[in-house]
Design a binder for these strands. Structure first.
Length: 214
DNA sequence: TGGTTGATGAACT
DNA sequence: GTTCATCAACCAG
């Protein structure tokens, strides 16, 4: 079912388009990070697309900086950034060099190395919570700023894409993105149906507008 | 040079 | 539902 032997150039070509087009190929993919402590493999269940300098929700919106330089590089590399003073989040860069389009890994299911992933997460959680949420996913895989720029198609990483892009993909507004870029006008979050690991920041019905006291 | 704000998650009330 | 941990970019001056 999986392209166990796909070559790095093949894989990089599949990542070479717009993040919007690549998203269905990344859903269900397996990403492995090997370290001295062991391997952790995550099956990706939720991603968010960022489209580069024209996307007001993207870190690349105001051009290239030292932090986001990786996003402007070639596809298949990791853009890891630090935020809120304590969290790391990881993207897989898509598109051609200079485009700065990529996919934020929002959630996944730990399919191998759950023990190591639990050790990395200071607060014990159920296995389903190990990589539920972008910062938790990055922590479970052992990613930090030192991994920024790493090639996920080369040692110590391994990326296995499904043969065919996922079909029943759901999409909706991005999470935590302020302004219009986080609304229905930019439905650039993609996830697999019936996955308990998908973060649920918008449960049930949309919030009723709160009454404001004048 | 200094103030503000995040592509968040955990622990509260 | 709200607060807080805590830092690198960004913007105003």
């Amino acid at each position: 079912m999986n392209h166990q032997n796909a070559t790095a150039p093949d894989l990089r070509a599949r990542l070479g388009g717009s993040a919007l087009d690549v998203a269905p190929s990344l859903l269900g993919a397996h990403l492995t990070h090997s370290t001295d402590d062991g391997d952790v493999t995550v099956r990706i269940t939720e991603v968010e697309a960022y489209l580069g300098p024209d996307d007001p929700g993207s870190h690349a919106f105001r051009g290239r900086t030292a932090r986001n330089a990786t996003m402007f590089g070639p596809a298949g590399h990791l853009y890891v950034y630090f935020t809120y003073g304590m969290h790391y989040c990881a993207n897989i860069v898509c598109g051609d060099e200079g485009w700065a389009t990529g996919l934020l890994l929002r959630a996944g299911e730990v399919v191998d190395g759950a023990g190591l992933a639990r050790d990395r997460r200071s607060h014990p959680a159920t296995d389903l919570d190990l990589a539920r949420g972008p910062a938790r996913l990055a922590q479970a895989l052992g990613l930090d700023r030192r991994k920024d720029g790493a090639d996920v198609l080369a040692d110590p990483f391994r990326l296995v894409l499904p043969d065919l892009p996922a079909t029943a993909v759901l999409r909706g507004p991005r999470v935590g993105v302020s302004g219009v870029a986080g609304t229905e006008e930019y439905p650039w979050r993609f996830w697999l149906p019936d996955e308990p690991t998908v973060s649920r920041y918008r449960p049930g019905k949309p919030r009723a507008a709160r009454k404001v006291d004048p």
